[in-house]
Nucleic acid binder design. Structure first.
Lengths: 208, 208
DNA sequence: CCGGATATCCCCTGAATTGGTGATTGTTTC
DNA sequence: GAAACAATCACCAATTCAGGGGATATCCGG
């Protein structure tokens, strides 16, 4: 299992190197303090897992992940950084990182994270996992959808699928005008006044 | 740290009980094979963490989480189950679970998960973490959005915000007819033929 | 039995959207 | 230098939507 490191802090980089080479099952195939010639380096080394810092000379780690995943989707990247804010976490994950651990993570946990990531799994520091989860849960404002009747919810779903009044009328065996009525009611309850707004709200509040 | 268990398989429940009582830092405050009188039990015991199975006599574990979190938001719940399908995972997490581990998880990892969850963090089995992550990333079909030009993307965003052609024209300082043109092009590229479909696709493929 | 909520249907009008078929001007690319 | 693309604008016809009126029928709780 080949590991590459991108980390600008020399002390920290050296301790990571030590951790890898003494791990027993990993091979350190590269260790860099910047992201210069990123793709050439990656291509030459073809690591299984990349440990990536965020603050780096050259392009930052978040953009680096994107590039790596674009060109080498099979390589799994694990972020390792001091940053714990939603922006950086989500940007990294959206760009394709498979793991996200903080720098205060215990050495054996770091190795564990690398192994999981290499194995196609994911590993988050608990506090990061919590943030991901919170974003995931994003409770619908209680009482903004519950107030929709079953029929209204059903019709809203059809709207989300992009159907016209007429098609919905056919699908549900009710008249065009009834669809119209329901939708008027939906708009009123959701405080919107067009199909696209209703669709946007429905999806964002996870009705789909 | 008080732990309560809900698990219908007797063997498995007993091994969990053993694990907890021998952990050193945890106290087993309750262990049940069904969800009857769920809230009364919880209220009487006030555990810090609940280990919850999904398949249970009485109401299932997913609904149970919802009830617990509604009435006792401070209690953290960790699912422990054999199910690894997106539906059950996401339903549990949306209902407020803080962790999700599979039944084949090593004992020490289970304890670790409980500790993390009690601490306000989250813990996922790596394969579950991966699913959460995938849902989070929702890869845009490569080349379905990348093919949109900057201008088109910009206009698509306005559509998602629910704006009309006219408003978009004003916002972008171009004519109504140009907006019309761009939108025609967008529909063509996304293979849709209405605002709401475009909006749905844009949101689902994470353009927002 | 009444009021309220839900589901169904109808009409009308003005506004917005959609789908064609153009055209012009740059820029980039081969 | 031609071809391809992006961005801009225009006109027209058909369709769809949005918002405003109404009207029944049912069911449910008090």
């Amino acid at each position: 299992m080949k590991i590459a490191i991108f980390e600008d802090n020399q002390k920290f980089r050296e301790s990571l190197e030590f951790l890898i080479v003494t791990s027993g099952d990993m091979e350190l195939c590269g260790s860099f303090e910047d992201t210069n010639r990123l793709l050439q380096r990656i291509e030459a080394l073809m690591p299984d897992v990349v440990l990536m810092d965020i603050h780096l000379p050259g392009k930052n780690g978040i953009d680096a992940v994107k590039e790596i995943k674009e060109h080498f989707p099979a390589i799994n990247v694990c972020m390792q950084t001091v940053f714990e804010d939603d922006d950086k976490i989500f940007a990294s994950l959206c760009n394709g990182a498979s793991g996200y651990i903080l720098k205060n993570t215990a050495p054996e946990k770091v190795l564990q994270a690398i192994r999981e990531v290499a194995d196609g799994g994911s590993f988050f520091t608990p506090s990061v996992a919590r943030r991901v989860l919170n974003n995931f849960q994003q409770q619908p404002h209680p009482g903004e959808f519950t107030q929709l009747t079953d029929r209204e919810r059903e019709i809203l779903k059809f709207l989300v699928e992009g159907m016209s009044y007429k098609i919905i009328a056919d699908k549900t065996f009710i008249s065009y005008e009834t669809v119209h009525s329901h939708i008027k009611k939906i708009y009123e309850k959701l405080h919107v006044n067009s199909k696209s707004e209703a669709v946007a709200k429905a999806i964002k509040r996870r009705l789909v």
